[in-house]
């Protein structure tokens, strides 16, 4: 249970960063932290204490961890890499146009 609570705390750190930070780079990092918390959560519920890798050897069946969430996490890590790259590219262009990383100063759209 403690592990899940810690994972949730990590997620909340990410949420806090997205909502409260004004620096664009810090917002991107916070989204990354939220993504790590989600990945960690997927791994956690598949993990079994004392279980082995899910490959059958010599006919003896021992408790195994669930391999599917690990495959999901690999996919989701790749997706998050794409998101981060896209966001950073947008921030580079935003900096060229506005000359600042402060989200409060990037407000030409309103209404």
């Amino acid at each position: 249970m403690t592990v899940y609570l810690l994972c949730f705390a990590l997620f909340l750190v990410g949420v806090y960063g997205v909502i409260a930070k004004r620096d664009l780079i810090k917002i991107i990092l916070s989204i990354g932290i939220m993504g790590y918390a989600a990945n960690l959560f997927l791994i956690l519920f598949a993990y079994k204490h004392g279980a082995t890798f899910p490959i059958l050897t010599g006919g003896k069946v021992s408790p195994m961890v669930d391999p599917l969430p690990q495959a999901l996490v690999l996919t989701s890590i790749v997706i998050e890499l794409g998101t981060t790259a896209l966001l950073v590219a947008l921030v580079v262009r935003l900096f060229q146009k506005y000359g600042t990383f402060d989200i409060a100063k990037i407000r030409r759209l309103r209404g």
Binding site: V18, T83, L109
Partner: peptide, 20 residues
């Protein structure tokens, strides 16, 4: 244009958070 990057960044942040 500057406005388009701003809108795309906002959309990308919201979209990624909702995907998580």
């Amino acid at each position: 244009r500057a406005e388009e990057y701003e809108a795309a960044f906002k959309y990308a942040v919201m979209g990624s958070v909702s995907s998580i």
